[in-house]
Simulated assay, not measured.
Amino acid sequence: MARKLVDVAAGVLLRADGRYLLGQRGPDTVYAGYWEFPGGKVEPGETPAQALCRELDEELGIRVTHLRPWLRREHLYEHAHVRLHFFEVSAWEGEPDGKVHSVLDWVRPEQATREPMLPANGPILKALRLPRMMAITQAAAIGVEAQLAALDRALAGGLRLVQVRESALDPLRREQFAREVVARVHACQGLVLLNDDLALARAVRADGVHLPARSLMGLRQRPDCAWVGASCHGRDELEHAAALGLDYAVLGPVAPTATHPGQPGLGWVRFCELAAGLPMPVLALGGLGTADMETARDTGAHGIAAIRGAWRLPGT
């Protein structure tokens, strides 16, 4: 028998130090002792955002002053078919108080998962480990040494996610460059993805692979590696990435870019329409830099991916 679909709003409360809030369900509840993100059922006449603000007031005693749409996931429990609307909550008034949870805990994304975790909430923990800024290499255009110097500066400034996209380098030089990037990024506990080359990603011990749209649409199952993402340009590609269970997508271009001269950007309104309601994080790409981060996240993006905008190059 088909179970009734229940809409639930869930909040990822984020502190300035990067920690997020989890609560352990009380002893007299379904799934007692399990950890979850705070939130609750969307009542008739409420939007998910309104329901979350009400629930966080009732559960934690706080008043939300700023939230952002993020992910939407569905899960089939034994007792219910749940559709969870996840929001990032970046500002609130008051101090969270465990009115309904046995324990509240502020957790760093890199820390071990709290166990047991509600099944519908578990995949969100990996999404929170995905850094907000992806830098895409351009060594073939600016030179390997200049790119490595730019990488070092960016890592010192906090960059922790790099995509190596260097099809124009000869195979040996590309492998050497990729190995060097992996060594430097891993020394800072960051992630490295190889563009469209799973064999090379494994050879250099990268963290995963990033698929261009043409490769994405030819797949019927997820590649076997820890992190897999894809470049997307429309809703059909985004939905295919979601169906494969990819960890993230990159959508763009949002603004006109030098990489695609004459091609108009999507703009933030269209980006929001295309990226809404997906189960995995979506990074905004195209003519963007760190100054666009807050706008991107308020529009529903997980963060930003950039080529030129990610590197502080001398003379720019």
Rank of each mutant, 00 (worst) to 15 (best):
V8Q: 12
A10C: 13
A10P: 09
V12M: 08
L14S: 02
Y20E: 03
R25N: 12
D28C: 06
V42C: 05
V42N: 00
E46N: 10
P48C: 03
C53P: 08
C53Y: 03
R54T: 04
V64D: 05
H66W: 10
L67C: 09
P69I: 02
H75V: 08
H75S: 00
H75L: 01
H81W: 15
L84C: 04
F87Q: 02
E88H: 15
E93Q: 14
E93M: 10
D97P: 06
E110H: 10
T113Q: 11
L118K: 00
P123N: 01
K126L: 13
M134L: 14
I136P: 14
G143M: 05
V144F: 03
A146V: 04
L148N: 04
A149H: 06
A154M: 11
A156E: 15
A168V: 08
L169F: 09
L169K: 00
L169M: 01
D170Q: 07
R173D: 06
F177M: 02
A187L: 06
G190H: 09
L193T: 08
L198S: 02
A199S: 09
A201I: 01
A201D: 08
V204C: 07
R205H: 15
D207N: 08
L216M: 04
L219W: 13
Q221T: 12
A226K: 07
A230T: 04
S231L: 06
C232P: 12
R235P: 14
R235Q: 04
D236F: 05
E237M: 04
L238D: 00
A241S: 10
H260T: 08
P264F: 06
V269M: 06
A275G: 08
G277Y: 12
G286P: 13
G286T: 03
G287T: 09
L288G: 11
G289K: 02
A291V: 12
D292P: 14
D292F: 04
A296Y: 13
G300S: 03
A301G: 13
